[in-house]
Design a protein around this nucleic acid. Structure first.
Length: 747
RNA sequence: GCCGGAGUGGCGGAACGGUAGACGCGACGGACUCAAAAUCCGUUGUCCGCAUAGGGCGUGGGGGUUCGAAUCCCCCCUCCGGCACCA
């Protein structure tokens, strides 16, 4: 069990209620442990880990230093996402629709110097590795989308006006003959020189400023109007030798590719829209085969069809990956292009301007610069005595005792880094610490790690699809490259549990059950009234665990009735007869239930496992009431039921187990086995169909051969009635299941 | 727009290509009770039908494959989720 205990909620509680984050967190852990106890949830507490303890976060710092040594951690100034409410920067993955993933505030852009981890070095492996993981498809798809690989080429364009070469990234180098203008992001490095002599320079600069300061959410908004300026400069199209005007526009993003594009309006919707808006030339490369298009009139780009014309030696080629490849080879041969793959994934921003996290272990020295804290000096501990005001700025920065530090290199005066790490760093490797949680010498025991990890079965919510799960994969690969572990993927199999939803009085809708929505059902009260076993059985019976399921307060009684019936069944055992005619039937059901529950548990189908247990319970109850099964048979059925039910309802089953006279706890008892022979029946019910429609059911000996089953089916009066004298042309016999009689004159 | 997932009774949900609706909730009828609760028994997809006789129709819609389709294939609709001015 691990407590992912650092993070903003603790610090916000401190600000709002004046409780220290450390006290608040440790108290929450205590309360939650007690809750687990009441639920009957079992963990191996000797493997407990708490990320906010120095014992743990010291190894976070140690890991950071290794990444720093290997150039996988670095600091740079760049535009970053700033949440004004949380008063900290956020990683791209923590910005959802332009808003803070945690609090929902609109995120602003700020230029700040921040620490990053070089996850982009692993983009290709993170993408390729997904194919071999036994993970839900949707999680893999989300990661693929997030990594955003695109294959294409870098192409060089001469800019005679400023004596530079402009490189653009394009996935369609095969359309270069149709490139009629260039577009740069307003932030592109060449822009100041390109517009230096522009007659309306100040206007352009004002516009650039406005675009830069547009909040991310607005700039990414759908249907945002395209705006641009002609720089008055030109680039030379290396394929045609022609001059092309260079424009600046808000639809080109500095973060992607090279921050500049070649615009091919005939074959790109965005470029076409821009060309029409500013009356720029349009030239077709791929001409549709079935119609003539006037480039000056066309309103839709030509995509994925047509053949190349007026671009020797490529004339006649169709739009295909092979054509793209030939263009790349051609450009490469002439020296103005080369194949390249780009990714949407950005490096992981881990700096946080908050107190309740792992201090980043570096010291700034005027003489030596950025100096890592030596391993022996770890952990850099969080000071307890800090003021929480809620004002902007990290409380750590106001703690002189923390900030003042000696330079580890020269011994001179230094200033400690006050940024703390994103809590996703804490959770990116914790599974390795589980193996040796108290080891004071090492981050983890490599031998144990290589023996136990990767994790065979991981369980988590979909909300971690591109956060925790991507970071943990990255850190695993980095650890492997640092030769600290011998595997490159942390979690072999992943299961996504669904959310529990419930009607919310506040919104009048069925929503995710959460405290903030005020639609929670207190497990404590339910446990109080019906017991933890009812709570557990019902929760598992709700529906498939991977689905979103709605909590139904009324349906809980079903689980409660089931358990009560079982208890009464135990009390009724004494009245069972010595011998019973239906012993075999209950015995068969008992074995069938063992089989069903065992396989259902393996498949995580807890809802159908509970259903199977209820069926055995019903069978037993009926037997006891009708007194058709011997006492021994009933006792066996009850014992098996109690054993199979134990993981679902541990408290009551353990009690019943003892009352039945067994020694010890069911936790230590073995799982029941089923006997194939006992599953067999002597006589089976066979369904008879005529032309695929159910017409009758017949009883036959289980080992009856096809011919005799067919004969019995034909002998059925109901079947004869439906055949109406038509001849049977074919009989499909599925042993033990059905007979389908196919007639000649079928409709 | 691209990609992924899902549509089954009044409700939650079951169904290796082989009896659609297991199991549970709810509802209705009955037993017990002075009464209620609890408990127990029965009915409960829908339509025709006096029927607890028989039959028609039924797994979002339309085609197809098959002796047989909720399940496999194609097209469409709706909902949920991810990505999206990504060159």
């Amino acid at each position: 069990m691990g407590w992912d205990a650092f993070g903003l909620p603790a610090e916000n509680a401190a600000i709002q209620r004046g409780v220290h984050p450390n006290d608040w967190t440790l108290n929450n852990i205590r309360v939650m442990k007690e809750q687990f106890r009441r639920w009957g949830i079992l963990y191996d507490w000797s493997k407990e880990v708490t990320t906010c303890e120095p014992d743990y976060y010291r190894w976070n710092q140690w890991l950071f230093l290794r990444l720093l040594e290997n150039d996988l951690a670095y600091k740079k100034k760049s535009p970053v996402n700033w949440c004004p409410s949380c008063n900290t920067v956020l990683a791209n993955e923590q910005v959802v629709d332009g808003a803070c993933e945690r609090c929902g505030s609109t995120v602003r852009q700020r230029d700040l110097e921040q620490w990053f981890l070089r996850i982009t070095d692993y983009a290709e492996e993170l993408l390729a590795g997904l194919d071999d993981l036994d993970w839900p498809e949707r999680v893999k798809v989300m990661q693929r989308n997030w990594i955003g690989r695109s294959e294409g080429a870098d192409l060089d364009f001469a800019l005679p006006g400023i004596d530079e070469t402009l490189t653009v990234f394009t996935t369609r180098p095969d359309t270069i003959h149709g490139a009629t203008f260039m577009v740069l992001a307003p932030e592109h490095g060449f822009v100041p020189r390109l517009i230096a002599d522009h007659p309306r320079r100040t206007e352009i600069e004002a516009w650039i400023d406005r675009v830069r300061n547009t909040p991310r959410i607005e700039r990414e908004e759908e249907g945002l109007a395209k705006e641009g300026w002609d720089t008055g400069q030109v680039a030379i199209n290396p394929a045609t030798g022609e001059e092309m005007p260079i424009w600046l526009a808000n639809y080109v993003l500095i973060e992607y590719g090279t921050g500049a594009i070649m615009a091919v309006p005939a074959h790109d919707g965005r470029d076409l829209e821009f060309a029409r808006q500013y009356d720029l030339a349009v030239r077709l490369v791929y001409h549709p085969r079935d119609r003539e298009l006037d480039p000056q009139e066309m309103t839709e780009p030509v995509i994925g069809e047509g053949e190349i014309r007026d671009a020797p030696p490529f004339d006649g080629l169709s739009d295909s990956p092979e054509t793209v490849r030939r263009f790349i080879d051609w450009a490469a041969g002439l020296g103005w292009g080369r194949g390249r793959v780009t990714y949407r994934l950005r490096d992981w921003l881990i700096s946080r301007q908050r107190y309740w996290g792992t201090p980043i272990p570096v010291v700034y020295c005027e003489d030596c610069g950025v100096v890592p804290v030596p391993d022996e000096a770890l952990p850099v501990e969080l000071p307890y005595d800090v003021e929480f005001t809620g004002r902007e700025g990290n409380p750590l920065a106001h703690s002189e005792a923390f900030v003042d530090a000696e330079c580890p290199s020269c011994g001179g005066p230094g200033r400690r880094e006050t940024d703390t790490m994103d809590t996703f760093v804490d959770s990116s490797w914790y599974y390795l610490r589980y193996l040796s949680p108290t080891d004071g010498e090492r981050i983890f025991d490599r031998d144990l790690a290589d023996r136990w990890a990767p994790v065979d079965q991981y369980i988590g919510g979909i909300e971690h699809a591109i956060l925790h799960l991507l970071y943990a994969r990255f850190v695993c690969k980095a650890l492997a490259d640092l030769d600290l572990i011998g595997f490159r993927e942390p979690f072999s199999r992943l299961f996504n549990q669904g959310m529990i939803t419930h009607f919310s009085e506040k919104s009048g809708r069925v929503e995710k059950m959460s405290k903030s929505r005020g639609n929670t059902v207190s497990p404590d009260r339910l446990i109080e009234s019906m017991g933890a076993d009812t709570e557990r059985v019902y929760t598992l019976f709700l529906g498939p665990p991977e689905d979103e399921v709605e909590w139904n307060d009324e349906a809980v009684s079903g689980a409660n009735r089931f358990l009560n019936r079982l208890w009464r069944a135990h009390e009724a055992l004494a009245d069972a007869p010595a011998t019973g005619p239906a012993d075999d039937e209950l015995e068969r059901l008992r074995h069938a239930t063992i089989q069903r529950v065992t396989t259902d548990l393996d498949r995580f189908k807890f809802n159908t496992a509970v259903a199977a247990l209820m069926e055995l319970g019903n069978g037993l109850t009926r037997s006891l009431e009708s007194k058709t099964v011997s006492r021994l048979g009933c006792e066996q059925a009850l014992d098996t039921l109690v054993q199979l039910l134990h993981p679902f309802a541990p408290h009551m089953t353990d009690e019943l187990w003892r009352r039945r006279g067994h020694d010890g706890s069911l936790v230590e008892a073995s799982w029941p086995d089923f006997d194939e022979d006992k599953l067999r029946r002597d006589r089976v019910t066979i369904v008879v169909q005529v032309d695929g429609k159910l017409r009758d059911r017949i009883e036959v000996a289980a080992d009856a051969d096809r011919k005799s089953v067919e004969g019995l089916a034909l002998a059925s009066a109901k079947v004869q009635q439906h055949l109406e004298g038509r001849a049977v042309s074919r009989a499909v016999v599925v042993p033990g299941r059905l007979v389908n009689l196919v007639t000649e004159a079928r409709p």
